[in-house]
């Protein structure tokens, strides 16, 4: 998908999406850490937003760094 030089590769969009959504999940995790929800979900004590959101951000950065050779 890079024959046209100006066109961004798909991995750029995937990375952007994961960073933005992962960032939102991670920030929500920080908020929930200090302000836990009244109705707990199962295993909420493991703070899944924090580690899963973090994993998404790291993976998203990795995708942004991919050099697509077409």
């Amino acid at each position: 998908m890079t024959e046209n030089k100006a066109m961004k590769p798909i991995w750029f969009f995937v990375g952007l999406m994961l960073i933005v959504v992962g960032g939102l999940v991670f920030l929500t995790g920080i908020y929930l850490y200090f302000n836990p929800e009244s109705a707990h979900t199962v295993l909420s004590n493991t703070y899944p937003n924090l580690w899963w959101g973090g994993i998404m951000i790291v993976f998203g950065i990795f995708m942004l760094l991919i050099k697509d050779e077409g």
Binding site: L24, V25, T28, G29, L32, T41, V42, L43, S44, P48
Partner: peptide, 12 residues
Amino acid sequence: IARYYPTGLIGL
């Protein structure tokens, strides 16, 4: 999903 996902993850 409803069992395990808190706010934010539910949206995901």
